[in-house]
């Protein structure tokens, strides 16, 4: 079970800077365990971010993204007090949604 994301959202000038730390194994499916068996792939496939229910980022990820990924992005608009909501869905169909308030 993945830990909650750590999200920071700050208004800088007229754009909002969002930094997200996600907890995920991001297994590529290429590694083998000590017995030589392939460890099955398990990674985040899609990430979406909304601000006041409007999509501000949409991403498709693959196994090249590292374990416990860190995502940093900016979008125009957003005001102090607005809610930024981040959702990820992984290759097993697990998902996680967390939110933060723009400071």
């Amino acid at each position: 079970m993945a830990d909650p994301m750590k999200i920071r959202a700050n208004l800088v000038g007229d754009s909002t800077e969002v930094k997200v730390l996600m907890n995920h194994e991001m297994e590529t499916g290429q590694r083998k365990d000590a017995q030589g068996k392939t460890i099955p792939a398990w990674f985040i496939q899609s990430v979406s971010a909304t601000c006041n229910d409007k999509t501000v980022l949409s991403a498709q990820w693959g196994p090249a993204v590292s374990k416990n990924p860190f995502l940093s992005f900016k979008f125009k608009g957003g005001a102090k007090g607005d809610k930024v909501v981040i959702t990820w869905v992984d290759s097993r169909g697990d998902k996680r949604t967390d939110e933060a308030t723009i400071a």
Binding site: K19, L21, K67, N68, F70, S72
Partner: peptide, 8 residues
């Protein structure tokens, strides 16, 4: 340093 997974 930014986004150090240690924060989790």
């Amino acid at each position: 340093q930014d986004g150090n997974p240690a924060e989790l």
